[in-house]
Simulated scan of single mutants.
Amino acid sequence: MMFSVKKIFTGLFLLSCIGTVVKAQISPPGLGDANTAFWSAFGVKCQLDSLGKKQTLSYIAIGRKSNLDDDNLFSKQAIFVLNHEVYNSFAPHQQYSYAISYRRQPQYDSSAPYEKEDTEQEFRIYGRYAYTFDLGKKLKLKNTIRQEFRKFFDPDFHQVEEDFQLRTRIKSQLTYNLSPKNNQKLALSAEALFSISHLNEPDSQWTSFGYREMRIAAYYMFNIPHTPFTVDIGYMDDLIRGSKSIHHGGVHYLAADLIWNIPYKKTDL
């Protein structure tokens, strides 16, 4: 069944030859081994200047996932996220951003009945640089590099096996403006993730730097008429190197987020 769903989503979006929009879309994080997963976020995007070059995006989100032996994407809690990011389009076609994030992620046993073992907390800071190419009136290509620092704790803020991680993410994304009516867009993106970690256990040491994941996503985005809200609905396939799920085509995500867009409002001093 999930293979058929994957073919439907992938076929619809690939036939449209399109890509992803960074300004509104909130991409799902990796939720570990599973067959299927669900990601939902509510965000607030604020314009900070009259030219629309500076903005912030803050969001709260949850994720749920299945076990490895079923396809119930709502089966168990997978993650809770708070994120705040600041964007600056400082030059034509160029943008940078920086962010801080808190994540709380349950850890489950890797074999049936997949009981919860513990909860891991993560604090993350990252920076991102993007360059956009105009490929005609409706099509854009955006290439992005993102560098992250991730620090991990147990529920009581004690150290865990993985002390911290440095992760590099490289993403290419196409954006196609489908229709000016309700600002409809279709999207396709591919992102490769590379990382190196410092471990506390079994000994204090570094892992080797290398490729860890590939995430392929397709989205449909539109504005809700006569409201300040944008809706993004999509599919993502997370291909995790060395995981059990990669033998079944990766982890298949259904994703949906709602963005409240707040325009710039000049304040009188």
Results as ranks from 00 to 15, higher is better:
87 Y>P: 00
109 D>L: 08
126 Y>V: 04
52 G>M: 10
57 L>E: 03
73 L>V: 03
96 Y>C: 11
94 Q>P: 01
86 V>T: 14
76 K>N: 05
83 N>R: 08
124 R>S: 03
75 S>Y: 05
87 Y>R: 08
90 F>C: 04
93 H>Y: 11
57 L>W: 05
116 K>H: 06
88 N>T: 08
113 P>H: 06
81 V>E: 11
82 L>Y: 10
78 A>L: 01
63 G>H: 01
119 T>R: 04
79 I>S: 03
81 V>C: 04
103 R>M: 12
56 T>I: 05
130 A>G: 13
54 K>L: 04
116 K>G: 04
118 D>F: 05
137 K>W: 10
90 F>Y: 15
89 S>D: 12
59 Y>C: 01
136 G>V: 13
118 D>W: 05
133 F>M: 11
115 E>A: 13
109 D>E: 15
83 N>S: 14
133 F>Q: 13
123 F>H: 04
66 S>L: 10
69 D>C: 06
94 Q>R: 14
117 E>L: 15
129 Y>G: 06
73 L>S: 09
89 S>Q: 12
82 L>Q: 10
65 K>E: 03
107 Q>E: 12
127 G>P: 00
86 V>W: 15
87 Y>Q: 10
137 K>Y: 12
118 D>G: 07
126 Y>S: 06
97 S>R: 04
115 E>T: 12
66 S>N: 05
136 G>E: 13
129 Y>T: 07
105 Q>C: 06
95 Q>S: 14
72 N>K: 06
119 T>F: 01
80 F>C: 01
137 K>C: 11
124 R>G: 00
129 Y>E: 06
106 P>N: 11
98 Y>L: 06
135 L>T: 15
83 N>Y: 11
77 Q>R: 09
112 A>L: 07
114 Y>V: 03
70 D>K: 04
70 D>M: 02
69 D>E: 14
116 K>Y: 05
103 R>A: 09
55 Q>W: 11
91 A>R: 15
124 R>L: 10
123 F>K: 03
116 K>P: 00
60 I>L: 14
65 K>R: 13
102 Y>G: 07
114 Y>C: 03
92 P>T: 14
96 Y>M: 13
83 N>W: 02
82 L>M: 13
107 Q>A: 09
109 D>R: 07
54 K>S: 12
52 G>Q: 13
91 A>I: 10
116 K>I: 00
124 R>N: 09
120 E>W: 02
62 I>R: 09
59 Y>E: 01
118 D>E: 12
119 T>N: 10
92 P>Q: 15
99 A>S: 14
94 Q>K: 14
72 N>Q: 11
135 L>S: 13
106 P>K: 06
94 Q>V: 03
61 A>F: 02
102 Y>C: 07
66 S>D: 07
53 K>L: 06
84 H>F: 03
134 D>W: 08
58 S>K: 04
61 A>R: 00
119 T>C: 07
58 S>R: 02
138 K>Y: 14
92 P>L: 06
96 Y>E: 05
130 A>K: 07
87 Y>E: 07
97 S>E: 02
75 S>M: 00
120 E>F: 02
122 E>K: 03
75 S>R: 11
78 A>C: 06
89 S>L: 05
122 E>T: 01
96 Y>K: 10
133 F>V: 14
91 A>T: 08
62 I>H: 05
